[in-house]
Design a protein around this nucleic acid. Structure first.
Lengths: 375, 375
DNA sequence: CTTGGCACTCGGTAGAGTAGAGTGCTAGGT
DNA sequence: ACCTAGCACTCTACTCTACCGAGTGCCAAG
């Protein structure tokens, strides 16, 4: 047999490994990686035979078995039941993710999709984010989340009052990040177009250029009618600033969850979560604040999503936080692909926003960025 | 054997009924109704015994059996297999819906929810519609769709150009129905604030008060810089008008589908449909154009939704089309409840929009409307 | 025309048996 | 000291069978 001679003595494994499994010797790592890869692909418990053959693990199934038993006792794998194959635990996935060779590459077809998307995308910011969420979900077959830039660093570019009915006024503000927010208010008295015009001018001169978070009460100018209207408007503007980021979230392809999970009950509960924007936002922020780009299973401390993994990638414009993209899927999601897709889309999105805003990001940065990804 | 002679002559039931079953005698109708009601509640095939007892059908199970057999041969019921109970066909549901005693009433708790919602709801139009879709899905445990007013009757109230970057401009338009639409454009040359201001004024004077559909090419005014910008802006505005209604659609509670259908495959395909706004819009419009408020199974001619029923209710403001609300669920959905909820929310929504816009709808109309529903 | 009775049908469930995948252990080889 | 082939064992998934029960259609009596 060809199996007679192999890595005779790749043996020093158990020696160098710390008890809690902070580090695994090379062969264990290779086996774990093979198990995870296989399980991600098939969703079936992986037996030692399937692993014995893969390149990088040129040992017999018997050896694999004993290594797998060790990996199980260290908490990286579990058996659904005796005499079944092994399944990775959250800890197993975590090791896999942390030790992934490359950050992962998208297939050429998928990268092409991304490039074409960002070449073609146009229209308004929200629309772009929404379509980006669909792109991401398309690439990864996961549910995707795209979170727009937080308002807290945004500056007001325009304030306008538009009369809709005699006492009904729409306050429209445009922020420097390209988002438009709006809120309708009801007045106690009829307001003429001239009055609204005057109030608009007052708000413009007061607030344009100011950070949206800095909007506060307005001093009286003397014209009490104008002041009344402007005061109410200033109030809702500051409210908009407070509520901050929550508006700007787009979920793409939740239906992917229905195919990713086979238990209907799981689908239902996960989708219910996804419908609660606040929860999703805080989940993503929390993961990012902890400096992670992947949260697996219970790592995010959010019980209803214990069977899910979350992948996040920041979007930054000129070094500033400009939101994030995220992926939600089963813990056995394709991490290399998901990470690659999330980071690539996140990068591109940031570059696109920068370009659109004509902010400090230079064309070179974008170009370099891009060629490095292509090469 | 008992099998020696049968089919004596309970045969003449076929006699009085028209071949296509346009009309059913009272007892058949009562039995059909009982079967549908029971099936809606339990999702289990309904046997003759369960029906024999219900008020309105005070006959023995044997009689019910023969009537059910007749109903089956007329196409109102089917048996999943011999010696199972009966399940309504689409035709059966159709009869049920068309002959429902009342348009259906919501339970007091649910009506209370609706009233509270419309008392408390505030903020901008889109937000209200979105929250309404959640309300509806809450009330009915179906996926809900709320479609905003079509733009085609809307008049432009305001046009504004806001500079975001040196060559990046956001076109913001406010329509008379309270919606705000926006689109960013890229210029080939840098534009100063003054230039944008001038172009804004030009667009304002040209288009404010005009129906959004009437926006067309702009004549030259002489100042070519201003004209260039204004022309591009006019173009995107007319595009916004064209794309019309598609922006304004809100889907609430798609996760309900995951509990309503037990087959994961069905969940996936239906949800995929729901993610395609265009399709949903045309579906609702189509059903409404055919003068229906319910489309059951294959009635809507949309194969992927053959196992679904769609309930729609128009939203009208002062007699004009102002969108619609819809519900999507399994064909065995609770039609009385769904119809009642959809119509009630549709009505209230129309009244609320009217009130907000201060349009021709008088306070009385609203008040009457409301008390009639309450009484 | 209705109803109780009866024979029949057929899906769902429970139990037994089997095949197969996978394991842990051990003895032998390098 | 480690790897590997072989082997006995375990346990799930699947099949087959029997059976229960809900439900039906038909009939004969009221």
């Amino acid at each position: 047999m060809t199996t007679t001679d192999y890595g005779t003595r790749q043996a020093e494994k158990g020696r160098s490994s710390r008890p809690t499994g902070a580090r695994l010797d090379e062969r264990k790592a290779a086996i774990l990686e093979a198990v995870v890869t296989e399980y991600i692909g098939t969703a079936q418990p992986v037996g030692s035979q399937h692993i014995a053959g893969v390149p990088g693990v040129n040992v017999s199934s018997a050896t694999v078995r004993s290594e797998m038993a060790a990996l199980e006792s260290e908490g990286y794998l579990v058996q659904p039941h005796t005499s079944a194959g092994r399944i990775p635990t959250d800890k197993g996935y975590r090791f896999f993710v942390d030790n992934m060779a490359s950050p992962g590459v998208l297939g050429p077809a998928q990268r092409q999709k991304v490039y074409r998307f960002f070449d073609q995308v146009h229209g308004e910011m929200g629309e772009m984010l929404e379509r980006a969420s669909r792109l991401l979900s398309d690439l990864t077959s996961c549910a995707a989340v795209v979170m727009g830039p937080p308002h807290d660093s945004a500056v007001i570019r325009s304030v306008q009052l538009v009369g809709l009915g005699p006492r009904s006024v729409l306050v429209v503000i445009v922020l420097s990040d390209g988002t438009v927010d709006k809120c309708s208010i009801e007045l106690t008295n009829d307001a003429s177009d001239e009055l609204l015009e005057a109030a608009s001018r007052r708000l413009q001169s007061e607030f344009v250029g100011a950070p949206v978070l800095a909007v506060g009460p307005l001093g009286r100018s003397g014209n009490s009618d104008v002041d009344d209207v402007a005061e109410i408007a200033a109030h809702v503007i500051s409210e908009i600033g407070q509520k901050g980021v929550c508006d700007q979230i787009f979920v793409g392809g939740p239906s992917r969850l229905a195919v990713a999970f086979d238990a209907v009950e799981t689908v239902r509960s996960v989708m219910t979560i996804l419908e609660q924007q606040m929860v999703v936002v805080s989940l993503l922020r929390d993961v990012m604040d902890r400096g992670l780009s992947v949260a697996i299973g219970e790592e995010h401390g959010f019980a209803p999503l214990a069977s899910c993994a979350v992948v996040v990638a920041p979007v930054s414009v000129d070094g500033h936080d400009a939101g994030a993209v995220g992926l939600l899927g089963p813990t056995r999601m394709n991490y290399p692909q998901a990470l690659a897709a999330a980071h690539m889309v996140g990068d591109r999105l940031g570059a696109r926003i920068a370009q659109r805003l004509g902010s400090g990001v230079t064309p070179q940065t974008t170009a370099t960025d891009r060629s490095s990804d292509r090469g």
